[in-house]
Nucleic acid binder design. Structure first.
Length: 214
DNA sequence: CGGGCGATACCCT
DNA sequence: GGGTATCGCCCGA
């Protein structure tokens, strides 16, 4: 149907409320670990890696130099999805955080695929290993069916096909942020978090981590 | 497993 | 016109 059908999100749990996102992105980001990114069509995955980006103070943020047509969603209300296009071929998705006008958000960098694996494989036909379906920000958007058409949708009311669901699994404890990936500036902000030991996290594994699965 | 590199289009200066 | 919040292929070890 057209854009706003009543979508029932497929993974059981409670969609995160608006207030969850109405804090600074580095506060929200680690709390998103172990939550579920779920689509109305059945695809779902557990969030295992995130990065925070903060308007005005963070030179790596798209919003660093103020509002433009591309980044407008980030300056809007929290709990919406900011989807951007990069490297001429890839889409990446964020949760907008903080108050209107701040311009910050959390980039979702990796998911553990949980449900709708057949649809994910169909969306990424060249991938032989399920481990690689959602291991990376542009890979997971492809697997989940997210593109520019989803820029600006509301994740809280879940009426536009996607939501972030709390299914009762707490975030990992004693998390420490590390440097973000793929930047030429802003490398000093320790605003990347991941689920320790998860084999679905992007980037190079530290030595020995490959055998330490969970 | 890890490094190197090309692809590719849009955005903002 | 330069840079990009990346990926996948190829290669050597």
């Amino acid at each position: 149907m057209i854009g706003k059908q009543k979508a029932s999100i497929a993974w059981p749990g409670t969609p995160l409320p608006r207030a969850f996102f109405d804090r600074s992105a580095p506060d929200v980001a680690p709390q998103l670990l172990n939550k579920i990114l779920a689509a109305a069509d059945g695809r779902a995955g557990r969030i295992v890696e995130v990065e925070a980006y903060v308007g005005a103070v963070d030179p790596a943020a798209h919003t660093f130099r103020g509002k433009t047509p591309r980044n407008a969603t980030m300056f809007g209300p929290p709990g919406h999805m900011y989807v951007y296009f990069t490297y001429g071929m890839h889409w990446c998705c964020n949760c907008v955080c903080g108050s209107v006008g701040v311009g910050s958000g959390v980039l979702i960098r990796a998911l553990e695929p949980l449900q709708g694996l057949a649809q994910m494989r169909a969306a990424r036909p060249r991938i032989a290993n399920d481990r690689d379906l959602c291991r990376g920000p542009a890979r997971l958007t492809q697997a989940m069916g997210i593109s520019g058409a989803q820029d600006g949708i509301d994740l809280v009311n879940a009426r536009e096909g996607f939501a972030i669901v709390d299914d009762g699994m707490a975030p990992p404890e004693n998390l420490v942020g590390g440097p973000r990936i793929g930047l030429s500036v802003g490398k000093d902000f320790p605003w990347r978090w991941s689920v320790p030991g998860s084999r679905y996290v992007s980037g190079r594994l530290v030595s020995g981590a490959a055998s330490r699965q969970r």
